[in-house]
Amino acid sequence: MEYFLQQLINGLTLGAVYALIAIGYTMVYGIIGMINFAHGEIYMIGAFIAVITFSILGIVGITWVPLALLIVLIVSMIITGLYGWTVERIAYRPLRGSFRLAPLISAIGMSIFLQNYVQIAQGAKIKPLQPMIRGGIELMKGETFSVTISYLQMIIMAMTLALMIGFSYLISATPLGRAQRACEQDRMMASLLGVNADRTISLTFVLGAVLAAVAGVMVSLYYGVVDFYIGFLAGLKAFTAAVLGGIGSLPGAMLGGLLIGLIEAFWSAYFSIEYKDVAVFTILVVVLIFRPTGLLGRPEVEKV
């Protein structure tokens, strides 16, 4: 029982991170119908910027954790957002209206490029980060095992929750959200009605990148290590989460992220850690077979 609870906490933490990344996939898919394959790399860049900024702050002597965390978050969000914007401008915008596979290939190329760019710029070695936020609360004490939730896990979950709420508000109640939903339904019509579709799409990429940056900051703190390769698998799983939840649906991405995190945590704990990724993908396939639109995706009937 204690063990189960502990895995639940670990799984939810991991799931929160996947959910943050998954939102980027789902938003981009919703608005331009493409898989932004390079999104995992954007998250990796967010994590790298976090590590670098933390290290610089450590050297300049800003070590008060809340301040350092705030600065790192802001820096990482801004620069990663700019990366997201640039990627869209260079690799995707010229291909809008091209055949379906073209932007995807371009995205794969971009992903390879960014991965190697970071590898060249920062080296292939794993980058460690000194643990900054230690300790936690012991929730339950069993005979052999006690359930703890670390402060960091609490921060990650709280932060994710706050971002999700803020984000849902952004999409449902602000002009940007409205423009976004309009473009999603009919980009041509939206442009005719005065929505700046290009800007809306750009902003979508920036927002997705900003959330991925937060995920990157959290992960660099949580695991304490970062390397140039983390984007691939995390991106793949976050995309799986988006599809599981129903791609194009924001609550779906959140739900999917949490589920993937939980599946991974429990599978590793009770079965085998080696095959945890196999479990994730198998469940994805099963869900897609029985519910092709994902858990919360609206069924989509093409009109003819």
Partner: peptide
């Protein structure tokens, strides 16, 4: 060799942008 895959990725993007078909 360090720049191989970098060039590879960039080439994929550029060729797509230049000639998507």
């Amino acid at each position: 060799s360090l720049f191989r895959m970098l060039a590879f990725g960039a080439a994929m993007v550029l060729i797509m942008v230049w000639r998507p078909q």
